[in-house]
Simulated assay, not measured.
Amino acid sequence: MDKFKIFFTLFFGILLTSCIPTKDLIYLQENDKKSDFDQTVETVNQKPYRLQVNDILNINIKALDTKLVEIFNANTQTTGAINEQGVYFNGYHVDDHGNVRIPVLNEVNVLGRTLEEVRIAIEKRLLDEYFTSDAGIFVVVKLAGFRYVVNGEVESTGTKIMYQDRVNILEAIANSGDITVTGDRKDVIVMRRFPHGTETFHIDLTDANSMKSPVFNLQPNDYIYVKPLKQKTWGTGKTGLESLTTVITILSLATTTFLLLRN
């Protein structure tokens, strides 16, 4: 009877510890339950992105008379579907000195500037050197896609590009097929480049307070890494049924081996 109790306790201990709890799979959980009337909307203060080396820009210069600005838009892709290859070959690359080369204007320094600051600088040069205000100069400056890298326990790893101005980490992960069942949502690593070097951040995506993290809203060229849970290393199964099957298999193998050695 004592041996049965020991076996029973060991069996369920393995079964429980090898399963992945549901609370480890749910995003943005509230620690304190509040009524809908108690919840308040908090503003998100996101600083504008400042351009770095190797960024790719899409710059489009417009005017009342389109022929006046055709030469300035020599690199701009105006027809056909926009794809990653087209963006790479037709976009304006920020070189190692922080400059982009624009037809006629030549080099324009953009390093450390926001997109709005670059737009204003280009418009000022055009109006100071080539046009009057009557030309109706209108400049559009955008990142040629929001680029980031995701690796680890997600369905689709690699470099991703999303064509929108802002991307949060949940959108980025969803665009990568979501985190697998064996991925650690409680300790996702985000590596971010700064002028002084690269910094590493940790974020718990199961906690609603993660929305206040400085890396919840991504910046272009961020690197996201999702670590595996210990259950994947053990190989015992992600669910109770898988774990039960594993335990039964091990017990069957042990019983068979014991009987063979006994005979």
Rank of each mutant, 00 (worst) to 15 (best):
G183S: 03
D184N: 14
D184S: 10
R185F: 11
R185Q: 11
R185N: 12
R185V: 09
R185D: 05
K186Q: 11
K186G: 13
D187V: 14
D187Q: 14
D187W: 08
V188Q: 05
V188Y: 07
V188F: 11
V188L: 08
V188W: 05
I189S: 09
I189V: 15
I189W: 01
I189R: 11
I189Y: 04
V190Y: 01
V190C: 02
V190M: 02
M191A: 13
M191K: 13
M191S: 12
M191N: 10
R192C: 04
R193W: 06
R193I: 04
R193A: 10
F194K: 02
P195V: 00
P195W: 07
H196G: 11
H196K: 13
H196V: 12
H196F: 13
G197F: 03
G197S: 05
T198R: 01
T198H: 00
E199D: 07
E199P: 01
E199R: 09
T200E: 08
F201Q: 01
F201T: 00
F201K: 00
H202G: 13
H202P: 13
H202I: 14
H202M: 10
H202F: 15
I203W: 00
D204R: 05
D204E: 10
D204Q: 07
L205R: 02
L205A: 04
L205M: 06
L205H: 03
T206W: 02
T206C: 03
T206E: 07
T206F: 09
A208P: 12
N209W: 04
N209D: 14
N209A: 13
S210W: 11
M211A: 10
M211H: 08
M211L: 13
K212T: 02
K212R: 06
S213H: 12
P214E: 03
P214N: 05
V215N: 00
V215D: 00
V215A: 02
V215I: 15
V215Y: 04
F216G: 04
N217A: 13
N217K: 13
Q219H: 11
P220F: 11
P220R: 07
N221Y: 12
D222A: 06
D222V: 03
Y223E: 06
Y223L: 08
I224A: 02
I224E: 03
Y225P: 10
Y225V: 15
Y225G: 07
V226Q: 04
V226N: 05
K227S: 06
K227W: 02
P228E: 10
Q231H: 09
K232R: 15
T233H: 15
T233G: 14
W234K: 11
W234D: 08
G235A: 08
T236K: 12
T236P: 02
G237I: 02
G237D: 01
G237T: 00
G237F: 05
G237L: 01
G237W: 01
K238F: 12
T239N: 06
T239W: 05
T239K: 03
G240K: 12
G240Y: 15
G240C: 14
L241P: 06
L241D: 09
E242G: 03
